[in-house]
Design a protein around this nucleic acid. Structure first.
Lengths: 116, 116
DNA sequence: CAGTATCCAGACCGATACTG
DNA sequence: CAGTATCGGTCTGGATACTG
């Protein structure tokens, strides 16, 4: 009974959050954007200026995705010129908390790589 | 001083492990493969048979990547027919431990999604 | 300033066939 | 059984131009 065929293309049933992580982390700029927002750089313009190579289109794709996942929360101020700010939700905080743990694994990882 | 330009294309200096996570999770089958290995299904043939849709080529790409990152360890037995087994390294255990924490966030995530 | 629409090059992944 | 090679479709993300 050790080898029952797993569902179709979507592998083992992965927890939602895990496939979310796949989705988020698989996208090139997501982590960088999250780091910036966490640092308080939360306006699209500022984010774009902070990340060389990131374009408006891609940034908006990421922001939308992160917002859909409720990792970020969008707040628009009805002003001229328009102002928008993105914040981490409390859920988002927990999510990147996990990412931080990955960072914590970092030193160990480097050692691992050294004694090749 | 709040907006110094970040390096070129590679964003904030992300911890190695984090970009590793990006790399791993961005690949479609990596998580499924890891789950299987953890369950003791550690031979390429068995893995391939367990994951419908996964092809030899892609599986080997994943296995190599996971091995390069020292998440998996390859052991070949000099027999005929050849036998190969992949194991989680201790580092790999820690790595998927973090993935498990994501799974732990799962219930909360679902709730979050419900009260949309 | 925030956000959308097009277009296009390249990466990725799946199918298939093949070697040791 | 383990692993490589090749080819082609698809999807992503980068460049650019544009609207409110």
């Amino acid at each position: 009974m050790s080898e029952q065929k797993i569902s179709s293309s979507r592998s083992i049933q992965l927890p939602l959050v895990t496939s979310m992580a796949e989705d988020i982390l698989g996208c090139k700029w997501s982590l960088a954007v999250l780091q910036l927002v966490r640092q308080g750089i939360c306006r699209p313009g500022a984010i774009e200026r902070s990340l060389e190579g990131l374009t408006t289109k891609v940034l908006n794709e990421r922001l939308r995705k992160l917002t859909n996942y409720k990792i970020l929360q969008r707040q628009a101020y009805p002003e001229i010129p328009p102002r928008v700010e993105y914040r981490l939700t409390s859920f988002g905080e927990k999510f990147i908390g996990i990412l931080d743990q990955m960072a914590a694994l970092d030193r160990e990882f480097k050692d691992k790589m050294l004694d090749d």
